[in-house]
Simulated assay, not measured.
Amino acid sequence: MGIRLIVPGNVRHGSGGNKYNAKLAEHLAALGEDVQTVTVDGDWPVGSVADRRRLADLLDDGGPTVIADGLVASGAPEEIARAAKAGTNVWILSHMALADHHGLEAKALAAATGIICPSEHAAAELRAKHGPLHIEVAKPGADSADISAGSEPPHLLAVAALLPNKRQRDIVQALGELQDLPWTAALVGSLDADPAYAAEVAAAVGHYGLQDRVTITGELSGEPLEEQWHRANLSLLISQSEAYGMVVTESLAHGVPVLVRQGTGAVEALGTTEAGAALDLSGEKALATAIRAWLTDSSLQQDWRNAARTARQELQGWDATAAVVAKAVMALAR
């Protein structure tokens, strides 16, 4: 069975959605599926008339099954409906609900053959916004990784593009209140996704006098990223909203515990282990208090590290993700 995977061309930094799409294509192919990944440029999630026309062309000649990233598809209900009516099975891969364009998204999801979400949290958000929907949950996998050696003093790691939603400025502010304790930290992620916000984060590092303790690395991959994980003792993903947070399972794959924000999909990624904590960050000092408690309690550090290493052994691979998707789309293709 042929599957065309349509992905957006206007997300150029290393986002979780981009990684999920690439891993899904790779592991669907490993299962024997004929997968074609096509990037469609445009000002998504709505796009211009010309953008939507290009999308329509890709939907119309995509064969029996198309999986379209929600950033592209959720703002194009007419194109989705037309392709579905013509006999194409159109699945929308909704990494997270659109912040805007409620009406367009509702119509697109209703017109689609089915919807794939990366987490129960993301699926629940869609249902809360749009009512009952045919959703298959295919949680992200995690690549195997070496266990972190850690550092002395402890090294804190936040891996995410520098974007307001990811709240790196809050991390810097919290670290600014912990200068009486030994630690180092790195903020690893694209500086180009939102240059103005990246500049604000850099300014905050300067404001608190943390230039010698907090490194803003930019986006890393391969060995440089692995070096950061090898040094890490604790990772942080305190996004205001998060569909899942693949960096959480990436952290656990390295045996590194994680702090996440309550009420986000990152809690689902962390699971029921004690490999970190889901924090109520409504209070101004909550993050600094949580990090201080960890930095000053060697038993807590050991407990979290042990739990992260246990969780590491239970992570599913991307083959399981692809199997869920293949089973869903193949059932309806028949």
Score class of each variant (00 low, 15 high):
Ala253Thr: 02
Ala288Trp: 11
Gly255Glu: 04
Glu105Trp: 03
Pro8Lys: 07
Pro153Glu: 11
Val159Phe: 06
Leu220Thr: 11
Gln302Ala: 15
Thr321Asn: 14
Leu236Asn: 02
Gly218Tyr: 06
Gly62Val: 01
Ala145Ser: 12
Val258Gly: 00
Arg52Lys: 10
Val137Gln: 05
Ala328Asn: 03
Glu125Leu: 11
Gly70Phe: 02
Ser144Met: 09
His130Tyr: 11
Lys19Ser: 10
Pro257Thr: 11
Asp60Trp: 02
Leu162Thr: 08
Ala145Thr: 08
Ile238Lys: 02
Ala123Arg: 12
Glu223Ile: 12
Gln301Lys: 12
Ser241Tyr: 13
Ala278Met: 06
Lys85Tyr: 03
Ala322Pro: 07
Val90Gln: 06
Asp192Gly: 06
Gln173Trp: 03
Met96Arg: 11
Leu287Lys: 05
Gly141Met: 04
Met330Ala: 13
Glu105Pro: 02
Ala122Gly: 04
Arg82Thr: 15
Ile116Lys: 08
Gln316Ser: 14
His207Gln: 15
Ala174Arg: 04
Ala174Cys: 08
Ala185Ser: 13
Leu175Ala: 04
Tyr208Glu: 10
Ala253Asp: 04
Val7Arg: 13
Ala323Asn: 06
Val247Ser: 12
His130Val: 03
Ser299Asp: 15
Ala203Tyr: 01
Asp51Ser: 08
Glu152Gln: 13
Leu28Asp: 06
Arg52Ala: 04
Ala277Thr: 08
Ile171Tyr: 05
Leu162Tyr: 11
Gln262Thr: 12
Asn21Thr: 02
Val329Thr: 12
His95Lys: 05
Gly32Val: 06
Glu242Tyr: 09
Val11Cys: 00
Glu78His: 12
Ala106Asp: 10
Asp69Tyr: 05
Trp318Thr: 07
Lys107Pro: 00
Glu250Thr: 03
Ala323Leu: 10
Pro154Asn: 10
Met246Leu: 14
Val159His: 03
Ala199Asn: 12
Lys285Thr: 14
Trp91Tyr: 15
Gln240Trp: 03
Leu126Gln: 01
Val248Lys: 07
Glu284Gly: 00
Ala99Val: 09
Ser241Trp: 13
Gly42Pro: 02
Val267Leu: 04
Asp303Val: 11
Val40Arg: 05
Val159Asn: 03
Ala106Tyr: 04
Gly114His: 11
Leu5Gln: 13
Ile92His: 04
Asp143Ala: 13
Leu220Ala: 09
Leu163Cys: 00
Pro45Gly: 10
His207Arg: 15
Cys117Trp: 02
Leu315Ile: 12
Trp44Val: 01
Ser239Met: 04
Pro132Glu: 13
Gly276Thr: 10
Glu136Tyr: 01
Asp319Gln: 14
Thr88Leu: 00
Gly263Met: 06
Leu236Gln: 05
Ala108Asp: 10
Asp280Met: 05
Leu315Pro: 10
Glu268Val: 06
Gly176Pro: 06
Ala124Tyr: 01
Ala29Glu: 14
Leu93Met: 13
Pro45Thr: 12
Arg127His: 08
Val214Arg: 02
Gly131Trp: 11
Gly2Ile: 08
Arg167Ala: 14
Asp280Val: 03
Ala326Glu: 14
Thr264Phe: 07
Glu33Phe: 09
Val214Gln: 03
Thr272Trp: 01
Ser298Arg: 14
Ile135Phe: 03
Gly206Ile: 00
Ala22Glu: 15
Val256Leu: 10
Asp319Ile: 10
Ala111Phe: 01
